[in-house]
């Protein structure tokens, strides 16, 4: 690998808000204003070629919205999302670039059209981008793709319901690979699977990355899975990245109090019989996030500044942390 790896995907201060107001009439009657949900709030990161960046966080932190921003299913309401050095909408307008990105979804039951045969599901990107002509060539390629993900070419004749969850996720991966992508957005690809099957899928994704130099944006709530998969890591809380950097560095010395909370909270098989004092509190509503640092109501280090002033990212070694306590050296 060269010294300066190429940045494949980049988010620059990307934001996405949703208007979750009631209808105009109801708003007038109840005297409420507009309600804006800031699902993603000025998020910046870059992913270099053939590496994996993971976004991790609890439900409602905006990681799935970020995944959808990354493949153009949502447009950013602020900032920019860039692919191969171009603005994402411009990049997606060109089929040659659009085919280089694809997505793997969480629910293997909802992500395959139940009325389509597997071979048509896998061939859809090939047909859409006219990568191959003629039914024989397409069929051969589909067979090859299915074999590659550990299924057999004959499985193309079947319908999705004839497969188990893990096998369906393999079909999903075969479909994602069929457009010969460089960049794959994986939205919780194994969280619906049993652990032994999860291991199969994670191994497969790693093998494919090594073989084809794939770049992954990996979304998960499971820190152990994230640790296994990622080169870099971003921890999200209420729409913002609170800590990001090389995954190893963060797991070795988590700095942000929220990252520490998450790591502390995860039950791990190595912690037989562990006693702990769990952190209290719940994630507040993203429609009315707390002022200042959004994590302050749950944070034991919070002081007056945390309650009023939004923390900026500061660099500690290779890790960016948005926390006043870390910046002031209060978090030890």
């Amino acid at each position: 690998m060269s010294q300066q790896p190429r940045i494949v995907f980049e988010a620059i201060e990307a934001s996405r808000s949703f208007d979750v107001s009631k209808g105009p009439l109801q708003r007038v009657l109840s005297g409420e204003g507009r309600r804006i949900l800031r699902a993603v709030d000025s998020v910046s990161f870059g992913i270099s070629h053939a590496s994996t960046l993971s976004l991790v966080g609890e439900s409602g932190c905006g990681k799935s919205t970020m995944a959808r921003l990354a493949v153009g299913l949502y447009r950013p309401t602020g900032g920019e999302v860039r692919f191969e050095g171009q603005n994402l909408s411009a990049a997606r307008a060109q089929p040659a670039l659009r085919r280089k990105m694809n997505m793997i979804f969480q629910d293997p039951y909802a992500s395959l059209n139940p009325r389509w045969r597997v071979r048509d599901i896998v061939a859809e990107p090939i047909r859409a981008f006219k990568l191959l002509q003629g039914p024989k060539d397409i069929n051969d390629r589909v067979g090859q793709l299915l074999t590659q993900v550990g299924l057999s070419a004959k499985d193309g004749e079947k319908f999705p319901h004839e497969f188990s969850g893990g096998q369906r996720q393999r079909i999903s991966i075969a479909r994602a690979l069929s457009s010969e992508p460089e960049f794959l957005v994986c939205d919780e690809p194994t969280s619906a699977l049993d652990v032994s099957v999860q291991a199969q899928i994670l191994n497969l994704m790693r093998d494919l990355q090594n073989r084809y130099g794939l770049t992954y944006l990996f979304i998960s709530h499971n820190l152990a899975v994230v640790r296994h998969m990622s080169d870099r890591l971003g921890v999200m809380y209420l729409g913002r990245i609170v800590e990001q950097g090389p995954a190893e560095a963060i797991f070795r010395t988590p700095r942000h109090p929220y990252t520490r909370l998450l790591l502390e909270a995860i039950p791990d098989i190595s912690s037989v019989g562990r006693r702990r004092t769990p952190v209290g509190g719940e994630v507040p509503s993203p429609i009315a996030p707390p002022p200042g640092c959004t994590f302050h109501p749950r944070c034991s280090l919070a002081n007056e500044r945390c309650r009023t002033e939004k923390p900026e990212h500061t660099r500690n070694d290779d890790v960016l942390v948005a926390c006043h306590a870390v910046q002031e050296g209060r978090a030890v």
């Binding site: 085919r99 694809n102 997505m103 979804f105 629910d107 909802a110 990107p125 859409a128």
Partner: peptide
């Protein structure tokens, strides 16, 4: 809203 529709939208159908 199902993912198979999302999958089709991602590749620009």
């Amino acid at each position: 809203g199902r993912d198979y529709v999302m999958a089709a939208r991602v590749i620009g159908i």
